[in-house]
Design a protein around this nucleic acid. Structure first.
Length: 509
RNA sequence: GGUCGGUUGGGAGAGUGGCUUAUCCACUGGUCUGCAAAACCAGCUACAGCGGUUCAAAUCCGCUACCGACCUCCA
């Protein structure tokens, strides 16, 4: 197993050879959702992308500790000085619920969706509200190191001082501190009680109506956004760990401020490698919940609408695994454009891959194979798939290698290609690699043979065996009317029959 | 306005200084089949524009055009 992987580090803007801090182990932190509304499809893409990364690292037999937080407090809306309110608190007030009820509701919804997309749960999923003490301690450390100042019970991070002494503020996002300080756009001016516009709150004094509040040395209040990730990554992965991930739109200010907080508290940088997943677009634009005034349609779609087809943007529903396959077809660092045509294409491709794998798993080698050109070609395709994954998790390229192998599989089954030209070992290896890639690494599930395969067991499998047997008799008698009626009627209930040389197989559409 | 990224065939989307092809979908022709579906074979001769570097550039550099993201709500 070649564990030499290269990944694109947002910090250096270069592909780098991955060197874990402790040989064989990896600490990975990914910014999770703020649970104040239903999970957005764009969030799903990010988490599916990191799920594939997590799965692949596991497959390479790294010991991975994957931490993904739930932000359930501190994510502010609007200005931090006047009328500041966090998203959870606002939602709770609007819906007359306990903040924790809001949090629980959307956390459940998020977990359900992650399960539907077949993502593996992280090893630790810490919540911001469960780590208030750690966050207060971190604020104190930042104060002790001179990078925090108090104004009216709120604590702000002094970006100017930090930038002067460390020369690293803006490193990740490419911001220049001077530009941030002399912000020209009027609508971004937000001086308030902060010393500098680029400073940010790390502890916020709660106004009397605010529902979520904790005691602290500075005021009764709540922690700032950004802070929970700094505190929890430190707690579970250490002051410096291997990989930090998140959506591209978190680069600034969230990740930039996270770095500042960690460095401000411990004088060391948090993660060695920063990975950012790119945005999911729809019809060429970033998904957005706001409604177009001309069309009355918003440029967004919820996962539920995508599954049901109940949206003006698509002509039919698509299953979760088709969506996952669709996501696999682009690189995590590229934007991905969701269109109906692209989904239609993904659905066909997904079925072709699943069908080919099923055929592959049923192939039996008769023995006496040699390592002819075909054997070499197949082995090289399979090897390349791993090379592609080692190169910054290039799932679209690895997937292409699998697809290049598909004609070999079908050819062997149909007899166009001969088993004499591949060894039994190679066939066994193909079976293993296809299963590894499809199910373990890409995390796909076979929805096409969900209930029972053509040789499966259970009631449906038994029924299908009987029906196919009856139809076979009709066909042998050249009773085409009966055989076509069976096929056409089954098609109406989404069961497709395919007559092959060695008999008839069926799949559910 | 600032910063960063992108522009690849009918659609989605990889990729590399030169090799034979990414791949998926669509389309066209052929093979197979009772018919169909699937499969297989072949084709569809793409790299925004203009310059430059080079024996060689879609791939490196520059400019132009267009698109997108971020600039304290964003995965």
């Amino acid at each position: 197993m070649n564990k030499e992987i290269f990944l694109y580090n947002s910090l250096s803007r270069k592909k780098e050879k991955f060197q874990p801090i402790n040989e064989g182990s990896i600490g990975m932190y990914v910014c999770g959702p703020t649970v104040y509304s239903d999970v957005h499809l764009g969030n799903c893409r990010t988490f599916v992308n990191f799920d594939i990364i997590y799965r692949y690292l596991n497959f390479l037999e790294f010991k991975v500790r994957y931490v993904r937080n739930i932000t359930d407090v501190g994510h502010l809306e609007g200005d931090t000085d006047i009328g500041a309110e966090d998203k959870i608190s606002k939602k709770a007030r609007l819906e007359q619920l306990e903040p924790m009820e809001v949090v629980q509701h959307y956390t459940n919804g998020f977990h359900d969706m992650m399960r539907i997309f077949n993502t593996l749960p992280p090893n630790i999923e810490p919540r911001a509200t469960g780590h208030i003490i750690e966050q207060i301690e971190m604020v104190q450390k930042i104060m002790d190191n001179g990078y925090g100042y108090v104004k009216n019970g709120s604590v702000y991070f002094d970006t100017l001082k930090f930038a002067k002494e460390n020369n690293s503020y803006g490193k990740l996002s490419g911001r220049v501190i001077e530009d941030l300080l002399s912000e020209t756009r009027d609508d971004l001016k937000n001086q308030g009680e902060k010393n500098h516009p680029s400073d940010f709150a790390i502890w916020i004094k709660a106004d009397p109506t605010h529902l979520m509040r904790w005691n602290s040395p500075w005021s009764v209040g709540f922690p700032g956004w950004h802070l929970e990730c700094s505190a929890m990554s430190t707690k579970y992965l250490g002051e410096t760990f291997d990989i930090h991930g998140g959506g591209n739109d978190l680069k600034f200010p969230h990740h930039e401020n996270e770095i500042a907080q960690n460095e401000g508290a411990c004088k060391c940088s948090p993660a060695n490698y920063w990975l950012h997943a790119n945005m999911l677009l729809m019809n060429g634009k970033k998904m957005s919940k706001s409604v177009d005034p001309e069309t009355g349609v918003s440029n967004s779609i919820t996962p539920q609408e995508l599954f049901s087809g109940d949206s003006p943007h698509i002509t039919k529903g698509y299953s979760p695994m088709v969506i996952r396959f669709f996501m696999l077809q682009s690189h995590y660092r590229s934007t991905l454009d969701l269109t109906n045509d692209a989904l239609l294409a993904a659905e066909k491709g997904y079925r072709r891959l699943m069908e080919a794998n099923k055929i592959l798993q049923d192939l039996k080698h008769p023995g006496n194979g040699s390592n002819a050109d075909l054997d070499k070609e197949i082995n090289s395709l399979i090897n390349d798939a791993f090379v592609d994954m080692n190169d910054d998790f290039n799932s679209p390229k690895a997937l292409a290698r699998l697809f290049e192998t598909v004609p070999k599989i079908n050819g062997l089954r149909a007899g166009h290609l001969s088993f004499n030209d591949i060894t039994g070992d190679t066939l066994a290896r193909m079976k293993e690699v296809f299963n590894n890639f499809i199910f373990e690494i890409f995390g796909l599930k076979d929805e096409t043979h969900a209930t029972a395969g053509s040789n499966g067991n259970g009631a449906l499998g038994g029924l299908m065996d009987l029906i196919i047997d009856i139809r076979q008799t009709a066909r042998a008698n050249k009773d085409w009317a009966t055989s076509d009626k069976i096929r056409d009627t089954l098609k109406e209930v989404s069961i497709v029959l395919k007559d092959g040389k060695e008999g008839t197989t069926w799949t559910k559409e």
